[in-house]
Design a binder for these strands. Structure first.
Lengths: 113, 113
DNA sequence: AATAATTCTAACTTTTTGGTAAGTACCTGA
DNA sequence: TCAGGTACTTACCAAAAAGTTAGAATTATT
């Protein structure tokens, strides 16, 4: 009769949850990824799609996403300027996460009033 | 020849991503859910499983999770105290999210050195 | 000449979040 | 009688995140 042993994988620096959240945890990060989705989105379109975000947070997050290689940025040398954002291959791989988030929210949290 | 119309669903108060993040967005929230998983975990076990969390944050998050009905708490009237946490039905429904988070982290972020 | 459109940038402040350290309660065993 | 184990609680402080406001660049339009 041996003591029941519990297999715990401690959440240290190799914790995949921690690693993913390191990229995605910002207040607006996943909402921006959700909005870009499989499309191309201009800066202004994103702003309208997420009405409550401030301009500062929007570009700050976009820059961070570009730096982390989740989002690709293409600026056209036009006046007025046109800048397009789309998900990179890596960014596209986060979509399943967002999908589950959407599913959970729709089925359990959103009031259908 | 009509202008290409873009169907954007603005992220307002009905945004499912926003709603889900409202419950799950804390720095430690998903890691705690990840650690509880389908098991029962005592307070001390969680502490050991997430070595870098402070006691304050751990109970604070656990209380919040209980309040939001994602986690169930059972305290035994023993000395020394024993308190068990497990996911509620609602909490279990967040596991697919965590799973995708784990998958993304493992496949793209964790260095296998 | 002034205005509008678009994509930012920068300085400053406020709010939120997280960390530290200490303490509480209760019984057991040395 | 005194440390040890367990699950917290509280008060205080620091750091991180986010919000506000203003402005800059460039060209077309009025």
């Amino acid at each position: 009769m041996e003591k029941k042993e519990k297999k715990i994988l401690p959440c240290d620096d190799n914790c995949p949850v921690k690693a993913s959240l390191g990229l995605l945890a910002g207040k607006w990060t996943m909402m921006i990824i959700f909005q870009i989705g499989n499309d191309v989105m201009r800066y202004g379109e994103l702003k309208r799609a997420i009405p409550s975000i401030s301009e500062k947070m929007l570009i700050q997050e976009l820059n961070m996403l570009v730096e982390n290689k989740l989002v690709n940025k293409k600026a056209y040398p036009e006046i007025p300027p046109r800048v397009e954002y789309r998900l990179t291959e890596l960014g596209l791989k986060t979509i399943p996460i967002i999908d589950k988030l959407v599913e959970f929210g729709k089925e359990n949290l959103i009031k259908l009033s």
